[in-house]
Amino acid sequence: MSFGFFNYWVFIILLMIGLYTVMSRNNFVKKMIGLSLFQISVFLFYISMGKISGGTAPIVISGSLDTAEPIYSNPLPHVLILTAIVVGIATTALGLSLVVRIKESFGTIEEDDILEMEDGA
């Protein structure tokens, strides 16, 4: 999995699909799913750049008999993405709760139906 820019290309494709889902779909739940995908793709981007070939997880191996110091991957992107994942779930929760209230109040979660109702209102 470590040849060239493959990871970054996958990131780009995922990002495009996610963004397209958000923008093109009428259904609010589907939009939220697209948004989650969009965010997940960015996680992959950050984690990929922290990787060092032949490195290992950034947890100190104590008492190892190896004299050679192991190479640790960069812990900083991991920390950033931990935070970003939390932000993602927070957004998802809030978005879905809005979807639930919209369903209760409008009776539908399709964007064009709602736009129609709003224009009428």
Binding site: V22, F28, L35, T91, G95, L98, V99, I102, S105
Partner: peptide, 18 residues
């Protein structure tokens, strides 16, 4: 309509932040 306004803002705002 405050609900849909908030939802719309959430989608666009999150895209912006991402």
């Amino acid at each position: 309509r405050a609900l849909t306004a908030a939802f719309q803002y959430l989608i666009i705002g999150t895209v912006g932040a991402t």
